[in-house]
Amino acid sequence: MADLLRVEHLRKSYTSGRPWGRKPPPALNDVSVSVARGRTLGLVGESGSGKSTLGRCILGLTRPDSGAVIFDGVEVQALSGRALADFRRRVQPVFQDPFGSLDPRWSAGRSVRESLDCFGIGAPADRERRVLDLFDRVGLNPALAGRLPTHLSGGQRQRVGIAAALASEPELIIADEPVSALDMSVQAQILNLLMDLQKDLGVASVFISHDLGVVEHVSDEIAVMYRGEIVETGDTETVMTSPRHDYTRTLLAAIPRPRSSAPRRPPCPQPT
């Protein structure tokens, strides 16, 4: 099956801001990944490794210096006009805290409605009902439709963000740290929702997180980023059980893993 998304040899350097400063290392250095239809690619790495830059390049929000993003067989950088609008409809972002992406003056319902209007989804008369369907889809109480983002909890805001992303019936979601700001109990609910979307709607996603424990849970494949490069990629099982790269092994060893048999240190010596 042809890949839905192919990223080929992306390079991106940011200028350092200070002309006399040392040139920072590239944020992306020859990065290639691919995502098949309906599959989830987990992108993991420490902060500053280039995950968000890659996500933004795929979304067309950041221009790479060289290389190509190919969505459904077409190079994204070459798109304009209708084709570009169509690409934006088919590829949607979900961010860490949708506080940033939701307009603070708009109610939750309006944010989702704007998404429908923007992409011209459904007949205008039908859109109120669609908003409620989307609320239902992401597990939001319709009574919250009138609330402003500041009067929603973190988990509720993330559901609104996901509903707004789903409004355009995307084929690919780029989720950048979508659960990192959430409490553990809320994180579980949002992860369930994202897994349901993959199962029920067949949406593919690039799931970006610094947390390998979370990435492992939701991903079919994993790509490990380190200092702007993909140092390892493979299906989740293989990467988790037989990592080839040293950095992946460090990441695996450092992952705090609550287990019923927590690895114990020798008992602490009692001071005299």
């Binding site: 994180q187 579980a188 992860l191 369930n192 849970h217 939701v218 099982e237």
Partner: peptide
């Protein structure tokens, strides 16, 4: 419930029990 919600301890891809 908190332990159950942790993806690091759960079978891959399984729905996580909700608190």
């Amino acid at each position: 419930a908190l332990f159950a919600a942790n993806p690091a301890g759960a079978p891959r891809g399984a729905r996580l029990p909700v608190i």
